[in-house]
């Protein structure tokens, strides 16, 4: 199963080989994500290393029934960005009352894996104009108005393109 085994090997056996493979895929992406969000190359490097170290330290908190490894790393990187680059707190919702010690149900893990694959395929198949705006919204740390200023597109066009993109993704997930 994509990357989930790697995280389990890091958690259970402190497996540096598994970590190196995860690192080779995700660290350059996290660094690129941070550079696109306005960090300079050296801050982005430092921050990417920090995000990957956090993954190791928090590997026991990862719940493959609730998120893919890519999603989990994305949320760690996003929170680090808010913390380091914007110097703000990011309030998180109240924890749900299930305990992290429970073994996730294998069926839930499989379902989430399948949903992730469908979502990934649907995102890859979006028309370029829609996909680009979704990427900008996630990477650029931009509001819709700021995207409008950057692309020169009217705000209404941006909003409707993003809405169309989300409709397509939701349709694919049905």
């Amino acid at each position: 199963m994509l990357w989930v085994e790697h995280v389990a090997r890091i958690r259970d056996d402190q497996d540096t080989q598994a970590f190196a493979e995860l690192f080779a895929h995700f660290a350059p992406r996290v660094k690129g994500f941070l550079i696109k969000s306005g960090a300079d190359a050296s801050l982005a490097e430092e921050c990417a290393q920090d995000v990957m170290a956090t993954l190791w330290h928090k590997s026991h908190q990862f719940d493959p029934a609730r998120a893919s490894v890519a999603t989990w790393i994305f949320t760690i990187a996003r929170n680090r960005r808010i913390d380091l680059i914007r110097r703000q707190r990011r309030p998180e919702p109240e924890d749900l009352t299930w305990g992290p010690e429970e073994e996730p149900d294998q069926e839930d893990v499989l379902t989430l894996q399948q949903e992730t694959e469908i979502l990934g395929a649907a995102l890859a198949e979006l028309p370029d104009a829609q996909r680009e705006l979704i990427e900008k919204a996630y990477f650029g740390d931009l509001t819709h108005s700021e995207i409008a200023a950057e692309t020169g597109l009217p705000l209404g066009t941006i909003k409707s393109r993003i809405r169309l993109a989300l409709d397509r993704l939701r349709h694919a997930m049905k």
Binding site: F26, R29, V30, G32, F33, A67, S68, A70, T71, W72, I73, F74, T75, A77, R78, E115, T116, L119, G120, L123, A124, I134, E135, Y138, F139, L169
Partner: peptide, 11 residues
């Protein structure tokens, strides 16, 4: 969040 994960993965 999952969409963010896919956007990151598909860079």
């Amino acid at each position: 969040d999952a969409l963010g994960g896919e956007v990151l993965d598909q860079m």
